[in-house]
Amino acid sequence: MAVVFEKPHSLCDVSMHYCPGCTHGIVHRLICEVIDEMGIEGDTIGICPVGCSVMAYDYFNCDMIEAPHGRAPAVATGVKRALPDKYVFTYQGDGDLAAIGTCETVHSATRGENIVIIFINNTIYGMTGGQMAPTTLPGQVTQTTPFGRDTSVAGFPIRVCEMLSTLDGVALAQRVSVDSVPNIKTAKKAIRKAFENQKEKRGFSIVEVLSTCPTNWGLDPIEALERLRKDMIPYFPLGVYKDITAKEDK
C-alpha cells in the first residue's frame, strides 16, 4: 500500500500533552516538515523554555534544551555562538517571549543573532491555567482579568513583530496564523524562510504564529478558530513586517 502521508522524521512518535483543539501540534509539525525538507535534523538544536511548550523536548527528534522562563533567546545565543554552523531555534509562547523574556528577545534581535524564533501568540498564559498575557486583547477575560482586560489598569497588548521590525538586526519578522489551510501553508513558507535565513547567515528571524487555546478561552476548537479570525487577526494583522530578502529580490 502506498504511503501518502507521513509523520516527519524529526517529529517524535509520541502522544503529546497538548489539549484537544490546540494548534501547537500543527506548528510542531510545520517546523519538523521544514527540518526534514532541509535535511538538517542532525544539525539542529531546539530550545523550549517555560510554558505549554516546556515539554517539547520530548516531541522534537533533534537535540533539545529546556531553558528558564523567557531565557530561550539567551540560551540560543550561547549555543549558536559556540556552534555557529548548527541550526538553532527557539519555540516560545507570548508570556515567555513578550513578558518575562522581553529583554532577551529584543537584544537577541538587535544583535542580529543568527537564530530562528517561533513565537506562539494565543493571547493567554496556557500552562498556568489562563492568566493575562502581554498579548491579551483589551476586554479579554482571563483568570487575572476577570472583568476583561482594562487597558487603564493593565495596559495594552504588545505587537511583537511590529516592534521588532524596527531593529536593524532583524532579517525576518512575519505574523502568520494556523486557522485555515491557506494560512497554514503560508505559515510553513515563513518558517522555511526563517531557517533559510539562518542557513545564509542573514540574522534574526521571528515567525509569530497566531494560535488557539480552547481550554483557557473556554471555547470548543471550532469556536476558538473563529475567535482567532474574528478578534485576534484584526488586532494582530497577518503579514510580513520585515524581510531583508525582499529588498534583495527587487
Binding site: A74, G78, R81, A82, L83, C103, H107
Partner: peptide, 18 residues
Amino acid sequence: AESEVAAINMVLGAASAG
C-alpha cells in the same frame, strides 16, 4: 550580554553545546 540574567543563560547554552 544585555543583562546578568542573559549572560548566565548564554553560559547555559554554550555549556549545553559542550
